[in-house]
Design a protein around this nucleic acid. Structure first.
Lengths: 118, 118
DNA sequence: TTTGATACGGATAAATTTAGCCCTACTTGT
DNA sequence: ACAAGTAGGGCTAAATTTATCCGTATCAAA
């Protein structure tokens, strides 16, 4: 983790959200775990476009930020499972409403965002 | 603007949101304009922590993404004003609910996010 | 004892974003 | 003529994030 040289001030609550959600795969990770795909191996297989290393790093960040809890089962073979903390769960409605906005405007947004969409 | 080498799939509406909001100062820009601080000079002065160059770039991206409209008045001296498009306005409730989440969890989030907050 | 599954992290390269510097052009006021 | 305000972009450096590579360890099964 790095500190920004010119830090984002956190005066606005939205910045706090962006701060913890900042990371290419974090939404996918949260969503995946919310939907029960919670073990590292499963997650890696599901998000196979991402490098394992980055997923691990971002999972750690989500744990550090208090959104995920990492459960290490004391059993052999080793088993690890992530779950949402209360803070993480409280994010779900926010994610949903934000996702809804995206869906409602998908047509226009894709045109704008995608390379060929100019 | 760059294309990601490993592009984020946009299957989830939240990704669309993150895509257009991705940029260190974009939320501040949207918020500023929503609150009537809409001229480049004003914006630069208000967000004086950010480099003018980056603010300009991100304003352009917001225009490209259809969230802002740039109005150039045909008058001397030159006057420019940004305003939210319908798409941009539709983002306001989303931003607000997201900001609310941040505020409600500010105490715990700041502890987690800030460097000294371990 | 080799293969493959589980899981994790250091070190470094590549990609991307942000910041800084310098330049243009027009207009108003000194 | 010169300074200061309006607005804006090219270019490059610095910072940050993401990706790749390689190595660790344990356990089960062949």
């Amino acid at each position: 983790m790095y500190q920004k040289k010119i830090p984002l001030t956190l005066e606005c609550g939205l910045h706090l959200f962006m701060q913890v959600m900042n990371g290419k795969w974090k939404i996918s990770l949260i969503w995946s775990i919310y939907n029960g795909i919670a073990r590292p191996g499963e997650i890696h297989r599901k998000l196979s476009d991402a490098s394992r290393r980055v997923l691990d790093t971002q999972l750690n960040q989500l744990v550090d930020h208090g959104l995920l809890l990492k459960k290490v089962y004391d059993q052999r073979p080793l088993k690890v499972e992530y779950e949402l903390t209360e803070l993480g769960k409280s994010l779900i409605p926010v994610i949903k409403s934000t996702a809804r906005w995206g869906e409602e405007n998908r047509a226009v947004l894709e045109k704008k965002i995608l390379p060929n969409g100019g």
